[in-house]
């Protein structure tokens, strides 16, 4: 299977400071689920920034969708970014836009007409349980609600890669589980999911997921499994997929998080 992301000996430093990431090498395959763990300050967010093209590495090679992302020109960046959904640690919702408009943002950016985007946005609002909060601005939403808006915004355009930075950091355990189900649903539809978290309980929920552990800016990979993870086709999808996400993608967004 063609790898979707390849990091080869990547290093990152901000300005003239010391490297926050060193010698990072790994490969991500399409349709796989990855957890990125590590203590605070280990470099998880920095690594994700490289992944969703918010930073260029100081050294090394990054290939995204088979293309060298390090030398990618600015005019080609938007096309790549539209293929990656991001749930930011701090949500980054646009404060003067309603929940509806925040979720609709990726579709508007991609040029979808207002007529065409209304249905998916409303379905997504319904799916994350915020149908009645569509017109609410972020400042009036709770932390958990903001997080759900951020997640809905990240997944609405059906990205090929979904990157989530501490997505369960501000929610209760029940909501964390629902969000994880959501990511699994996306993964079941073929999206490569990368979730950065230091919540060990979360890791146990998806035993099939690959683990990447960062320690002081380096990928702890003593066995070499992270560098060369087992290819996804080796796994039995039925073992991975929970019963919640429908197999048919067209029905996917019409169901609630609990499958109702």
């Amino acid at each position: 299977m063609q790898e979707i992301v390849t990091f080869d000996n990547v290093g990152l430093r901000y300005g003239t400071g010391k490297e926050v990431l060193s010698d990072i090498s790994f490969t991500l395959y399409p349709g796989s689920f990855y957890f990125l763990t590590g203590n605070s300050g280990a470099g998880k967010t920095s690594l994700l920034k490289l992944l969703y093209l918010a930073q260029r590495p100081s050294r090394g090679l990054i290939k995204l969708f088979g293309t060298d992302a390090v030398t990618l020109t600015r005019d080609r960046m938007p096309g790549f970014r539209r293929r990656i959904g991001v749930v930011f640690q701090d949500f980054r919702l646009v404060p003067h836009l309603s929940a509806y408009d925040n979720i609709a943002l990726p579709l508007r950016v991609s040029g979808m007409s207002e007529k065409d985007l209304d249905a998916p946005v409303r379905e997504m609002l319904d799916w994350v349980g915020l149908a009645d909060r569509a017109s609410a601005r972020p400042a009036t939403l709770s932390g958990g609600e903001q997080q759900r808006v951020a997640i809905a915004r990240a997944v609405i355009s059906r990205p090929e890669i979904l990157v989530a930075d501490e997505p369960t950091g501000n929610v209760d355990p029940e909501m964390a589980l629902r969000l994880l189900k959501l990511f699994e649903s996306m993964n079941a539809l073929g999206t490569t999911v990368v979730v950065a978290t230091h919540d060990v309980h979360l890791l146990a929920r998806i035993p099939e997921a690959h683990m990447m552990r960062l320690f002081r800016g380096k990928l702890a990979d003593p066995t070499g499994v992270l560098r060369h993870p087992p290819k996804p086709e080796a796994r039995n999808p039925d073992d991975v997929l929970p019963s919640f996400p429908p197999k048919d993608a067209s029905d996917y967004f019409r169901q609630g998080p609990d499958g109702s």
């Binding site: 600015r74 938007p78 096309g79 970014r81 539209r82 646009v94 943002l105 950016v109 991609s110």
Partner: peptide
Amino acid sequence: GPTIGVMHLLGSTDVQ
């Protein structure tokens, strides 16, 4: 700036 930053990360072009 923050709004533009988010737009960029969602794939917005400079011209947009």
